[in-house]
Design a protein around this nucleic acid. Structure first.
Length: 835
RNA sequence: GCCCCCAUAGCCCAACUGGCAGAGGCGAUCGACUUAAAAUCGAUUCAGUACGAGUUCGAAUCUCGUUGGGGGCACCA
């Protein structure tokens, strides 16, 4: 026997037996033929699952980050297929956007050429990477068949008052020559190119996402437990709801009172001045009404404010600046005159762009008051030192003083009392505010969805009629696309000039294009009926598939994309087109792939090239490495993992199938009981492990089983043992989640038809899971002193007797008195003795 | 400044949510096979869970504090 085994082993040694290249070449065309992941068969009776990976931007070939994301998403999709579901796992391309346009300018091309070339390359790479995508459902957002429905969505929002134009100060990237959404400004820098962002007053299109702020916040509770807690927190922070009161202040010499928002109406008696945002209309108006000197000072100040960058403005140690506007407000509760200042620490876009300043109890107001020598009045006895002396605002709680009828109340008591009084007097009301701003969706660039609005002098903003959609992009390329601050589309006269759809008079198309996050805000719905030419999506198909059972993607989109999709979904719900209010029932964030601690993202230099790794180790080894590296949400440092080790394991697993297939198919043994037990224990554990995303543990367990099978083949029953075959088949099926090529080849060697992807996870035999004996730990005062082998059904009393009599326990207890015995049958007994 | 998460062997990571700290991998060392090397196979090595208290019969796990690392928000009234 020895000689036989070693000979067989020797044979495999020559070329290691396992050749990933030939395995890949064998099975890829077979799968292309077989289409094991097609999901559109109307006769399919399997229950449905919708698994979606965030679609890629086609910037060149796939990189390590894609490889990780798609390997992990694939584990989930393949798992549900193996569990008997009809899984929709589609893929598409987020194909509009600036990189294509910049590349086109450089090379004198139309962005389309660059984009479709990259898509083709990525598509080929994904196929080779064995992603279990349904290739019948592919979409590209730059196809007119897709963006037509972007335009439809825009018009629907427009007609509901949720898409509107307004002029305001917007973030502007001087390098990209386009506006930026609030969300695209990171620490005062353009998220894309790190250029300091400036402000510009422009008329732009917005989506009214703030109208949905409450629902966007409250519905996050539905996602508790199925979304990463981190993402929920980020969304909540971003929406930033605060509650307080609106209070009306009469302005001397002005008809209309000014409303301010405060979270601390209890400190109303402590207001000693008022501040308005310098870039607000109110500030301008009050300054204009002032003396020539006031006007002069204000105008100079406004220039300084406008010139400052977001970084300067946002920095924490930014010194308080401002000018007195020469005007006074009247405190509604005590009639005091409050001087009105303009200062840039008050934001025009938040609340009402004006505040009541309570320097004693608000640090920002205190800093300002001390800088400009304004009075500080304490109205809450907090026991803290006088803010005017200490320079630290008294933030704590206490009893109100200097506050008329409110004296003696605590902060919590006073707030509702003040609000009630204000409401009674018609001077204010309870109010809430959000950090979230409306979503700026227009961009002054070419490669995006044209905004389907025609501007007519007589009729105003007129939506393009449905039968004229899509409004297609005109042909433009190279230098024509050079950013110049206004949309390149404006220079195409015969595209811009059209008759007004309503009155027929000469009119002009809107020349801006939509921000690409509009495209991705609803793409998940397009997948349910990607070829539908009648509607954005088929409502019945959406009902069947959506919402998404499992969404997989990077935490980089934790705010933007997810918030926008959630918003659009709620709008579609209100329109009656979908029956759910949250698009992504569960979310998995995979980490990033790094090299020596530095990120390998799209914009950075790729320190490790995916194609090199695939050539060296094969698709399966790379996929396995990604899944085995650790919990999916952790970052992977490529220097810490071993694709060579993965390849070694795959070869080991593969050789099991080879050994089994080359053994005479004679049943001469009853099967190794221990091996069967291990096999079925794994089968029992896999669903729980996969569903809690412990892919690394599944792989560790597979390795364990493979090692055990190897031992049984070499040292025990041999390769013909039915338990060995059973274990090897189980390995092939579970391995197919991670290493589809190797698994398919094993499956074939074991005598089955492809595809192993549809073989189905086997049900564990529960009779094999019952242990005939277990080890019971005997502790004395919490320290392990002995071990007993007992029946799992053993009773407490019997176990206690056995434990007390065990040699280790007797020795440890000595002649001390036993106080109590804690029994957790059948695993543990703890004997507590007196000291 | 405020809020959240994390810390287990030389390294990456497990530990049935309070019950024997080790499943798996990498690395290292030794051995088998080989003329030799690679590959393969086998074996061995290694921490008492960042630190300090507390709760408990019992703590990696729960509580509090400290240190270190990561993340979010940040002049949002």
């Amino acid at each position: 026997m020895d000689s036989d085994v070693s000979q067989a082993t020797n044979q495999g040694e020559t070329e290691n037996g396992y050749d990933f290249r030939s395995i890949q070449d064998t099975w890829l065309p077979v799968w292309d033929e077989l289409r094991p992941f097609a999901s559109s068969n109307p006769d399919d009776t399997r229950p449905r699952k919708y698994v979606l990976d965030m679609f890629p931007y086609p910037s060149g070939d796939l990189h390590m980050g894609h490889a990780e994301a798609y390997a992990l998403g694939d584990v989930i999709a393949r798992y549900w297929v193996q569990s008997g579901f009809n899984v929709m796992h589609p893929i598409g391309w987020d194909a509009f956007g600036l990189p294509a346009e910049n590349a086109a300018i450089k090379r004198g091309l139309n962005p389309r050429d660059w984009t479709y070339e990259n898509i083709e390359q990525q598509r080929a790479s994904m196929r080779r990477y064995a992603c279990s995508f349904d290739w019948d459902r592919v979409l590209r957002t730059c196809d007119p068949e897709y963006y037509r429905w972007n335009q439809w969505l825009f018009i629907e929002l427009f007609q509901r008052g949720l898409a509107y134009r307004k002029g305001s100060w917007v973030n502007w990237c001087p390098k990209d020559q386009t506006v930026l959404a609030n969300e695209q400004v990171v620490n005062g820098l353009c998220e894309r190119c790190d250029t300091p962002v400036t402000k510009k007053k422009l008329t732009q299109w917005y989506f009214g996402i703030t109208k949905y702020a409450d629902r966007l916040l409250d519905d996050l509770n539905q996602l508790e437990g199925t979304w990463p807690a981190k993402v929920l927190t980020m969304q909540r922070n971003w929406i930033g709801r605060s509650v307080g009161a609106d209070v009306q202040f009469v302005i001397e010499g002005r008809e209309e009172p000014v409303t301010v928002y405060t979270t601390r109406p209890d400190t109303l008696y402590g207001a000693t001045f008022m501040v308005v945002a310098p870039d607000s209309d109110l500030a301008q108006e009050l300054a204009n009404a002032g003396s020539a000197e006031v006007q002069q000072q204000f105008s100079e100040y406004l220039d300084v404010v406008k010139a400052s960058t977001e970084i300067e403005r946002q920095s924490t140690d930014h010194k308080k600046t401002g000018v007195f506007l020469g005007a006074y407000a009247v405190n509604p509760v005590n009639g005091e005159r409050l001087p009105i200042w303009a200062a840039d620490y008050v934001l025009a876009e938040y609340g009402h762009g004006a505040i009541m300043a309570v320097p004693a109890h608000d640090q920002r107001d205190l800093d300002f008051a001390l800088a400009f020598d304004l009075p500080v009045r304490v109205v809450l006895e907090t026991g803290l030192p006088d803010p005017a002396d200490s320079g630290i605002a008294a933030a704590g709680d206490g009893r109100l003083i200097n506050s008329g009828a409110l004296n003696g109340h605590t902060k919590a008591e006073a707030i509702p009392l003040v609000i009630a009084q204000l409401e009674k007097d018609g001077l204010g009301s309870a109010a809430k505010n959000f950090r979230l701003r409306d979503w700026l969706v227009s961009r002054q660039r070419y490669w995006g969805t044209p905004i389907p609005i025609i501007h007519c002098e007589a009729c105003g903003e007129v939506p393009v009629p449905a039968d004229q959609l899509p409004v297609e992009l005109p042909e433009m390329s190279g230098a024509e696309l050079q950013p110049k601050g206004t949309s390149p589309l404006g220079s195409v006269a015969d595209w811009v000039n059209v008759p007004c759809p309503r009155c027929g008079a000469p009119a002009k198309r809107d020349t801006d294009t939509m921000y690409t996050f509009v495209d991705s805000s609803w793409y998940y719905l397009r997948f349910v009926s990607p070829h539908n030419s009648e509607a954005a999506f088929d409502v019945a198909e959406a009902e069947k598939w959506a919402p998404i059972d499992q969404y997989v993607g990077g935490v980089t989109h934790a705010i933007l994309h997810l918030l926008y999709s959630r918003f659009v979904t709620k709008v579609l719900f209100d329109m009656g087109l979908v029956t759910f209010t949250e698009p992504f029932s569960a979310l998995l964030n995979q980490g990033m792939v790094q090299m020596d601690g530095s990120a390998m993202s799209k914009s950075r230099v790729n320190l490790v090239r995916l194609s090199d790794e695939l050539d060296e180790f094969g698709v399966d080894a790379i996929r396995l490495t990604m899944a085995f590296a650790g919990p999916p949400e952790d970052d992977i440092d490529w220097k810490d993992v071993s694709p060579a080790g993965s390849a070694k394991f795959l070869a080991r697993a593969w050789r099991l199938a080879r050994d089994v297939s080359s053994s005479p198919d004679v049943i001469w043994a009853n099967g190794d009981e221990k091996l069967r037990r291990s096999t079925h224990r794994l089968l029992a554990d896999v669903p729980g492990l996969v569903e809690s995303f412990k892919f690394n543990v599944v792989i560790a367990r597979l390795m364990e089983l493979v090692n055990q099978v190897r031992r049984v083949i070499d040292q025990g029953a041999g390769a013909a043992d039915p338990a060995v075959r059973e274990a090897t088949e189980t390995v092939a099926i579970i391995l197919s989640l991670f290493a589809p090529y190797t698994a398919e080849d094993m499956w074939s060697m074991l005598g089955y038809e492809p595809s192993v992807a549809r073989a189905g996870l086997r049900k564990p035999d529960h009779t094999l899971l019952v242990e005939e004996s277990v080890t019971c730990v005997v502790q004395v005062n919490g320290k392990v002193r002995d071990r007993l082998t007992v029946s799992p059904q053993i009773g407490d009393d019997e176990l206690t007797q056995l434990a007390l009599a065990s040699a280790g326990a007797v020795k440890a207890v000595g002649d001390a008195a036993v106080k109590t015995v804690v029994v957790r049958a059948p695993k543990l007994v703890n004997i507590v003795v007196g000291v």
